[in-house]
Simulated scan of single mutants.
Amino acid sequence: MYKLSKDRRLRKNREYQFVYHNSKSYVNKLMVLHVLPRSSSHQTRIGFVTGKKIGCAVERNRCRRLMKEVYRLHQQELENGFDLVLIGRSFLKHVGYKEAEQNMLQLFRRAKVLKKKRSL
């Protein structure tokens, strides 16, 4: 239902590098979000990154899983037509799901990649 399929992910190094060099970034205490607008007919693609400053492989993988889970549950709320790279920072390893969710949604709102809420 909420699977992150291959066509919705950034997979190649050159795709990540293109986003890094041509995007606008948004930063908070836990994460950095790089946003590159594309045509609105394309699906939004995302990549998750954690650097070695976070800690050992176990901690990096936990942080990546945490970011992926928050994204998985909120991916339907995002607009189409963006390439996103989400980078975990060292404080991410000390927080739980709720705080990670709040911070990620805050970054998405600041980047204006969330769908507009329709009033009935």
Score class of each variant (00 low, 15 high):
Asp83Asn: 08
Leu36Arg: 07
Ser41Tyr: 12
Tyr26Cys: 06
Met67Gly: 03
Arg64Asn: 14
Arg64Trp: 08
Asn28Thr: 02
Gly47Tyr: 04
His74Gly: 04
Lys53Thr: 08
Leu73Ser: 12
Arg62Val: 00
His34Lys: 14
Leu84Glu: 00
Asn22Ala: 14
Arg72Tyr: 10
Arg60Tyr: 06
Thr44Phe: 05
Val58Asn: 06
Lys52Gln: 09
His21Ser: 15
Asn61Phe: 05
Leu36Gln: 14
Ser23Ile: 08
Gly81Leu: 03
Ser23Cys: 11
Val85Ala: 10
Lys53Ala: 12
Glu79Ala: 08
Phe48Tyr: 01
Ser25Asp: 12
His34Ile: 04
Ser25Tyr: 13
Cys56Tyr: 09
Met67Pro: 01
Leu73Asp: 04
Gln43Leu: 14
Glu69Lys: 07
Thr50Asp: 01
Arg38Asn: 15
Arg65Asp: 11
Lys52Pro: 03
Arg62Phe: 05
Leu84Tyr: 09
Val70Met: 09
Val32Cys: 08
Phe48Ala: 02
Ser39Leu: 14
Leu30Asp: 01
Phe48Thr: 02
Glu69Trp: 08
Leu33Asn: 01
Gly81Ile: 03
Arg38Gln: 15
Val70Cys: 10
Phe82Asn: 00
Leu66Asn: 06
His42Thr: 12
Ser25Ala: 15
Val49Arg: 06
Phe48Lys: 02
His74Asp: 12
Asn80Lys: 15
Asn28Ser: 11
Tyr71Thr: 03
Leu33Trp: 04
Glu59Asn: 13
Val58His: 07
Thr50Phe: 00
Lys52Glu: 07
Tyr26Pro: 03
Val32Arg: 12
Gly55Tyr: 05
Leu78Tyr: 08
Ser39Gly: 09
Cys56Val: 11
Arg45Gly: 04
Ser23Gly: 11
Ser39Phe: 12
Ala57Thr: 04
Gln76Met: 13
Ile54Gln: 03
Arg64Tyr: 10
Lys68Phe: 11
His42Pro: 00
Gln43His: 10
Lys29Cys: 00
Thr50Leu: 01
Leu33Ile: 07
His34Gly: 00
Leu36Trp: 12
Asn22Gly: 08
Phe82Gly: 01
Gly51Ser: 15
Gly47Ser: 09
His42Ser: 14
Val35Ile: 13
Phe82Thr: 02
Val58Leu: 11
Ile54Glu: 00
Lys68Asp: 11
Met67Val: 13
Val27Tyr: 14
Ser23Tyr: 08
Tyr26Ala: 10
Gln75Ala: 09
Glu59Arg: 15
Phe82Gln: 05
Asp83Glu: 13
Val58Gly: 04
His34Val: 02
Arg64Met: 09
Glu59Tyr: 12
Arg72Thr: 04
Gly81Val: 06
Arg65Gly: 10
Ser39Arg: 13
Lys68Pro: 03
Ser39Gln: 14
Arg60Glu: 06
Tyr71Asp: 00
Arg62Ser: 07
Arg45Cys: 01
Leu30Thr: 06
Tyr20Asp: 09
Ile46Lys: 00
Glu79Asn: 10
Tyr26Thr: 02
Gly51Thr: 15
Leu73Gly: 05
Asp83Ile: 00
Arg65Asn: 05
Asn80Arg: 15
Gln43Phe: 14
Lys52Asn: 12
Glu77Met: 14
Gln43Pro: 12
Tyr20Met: 04
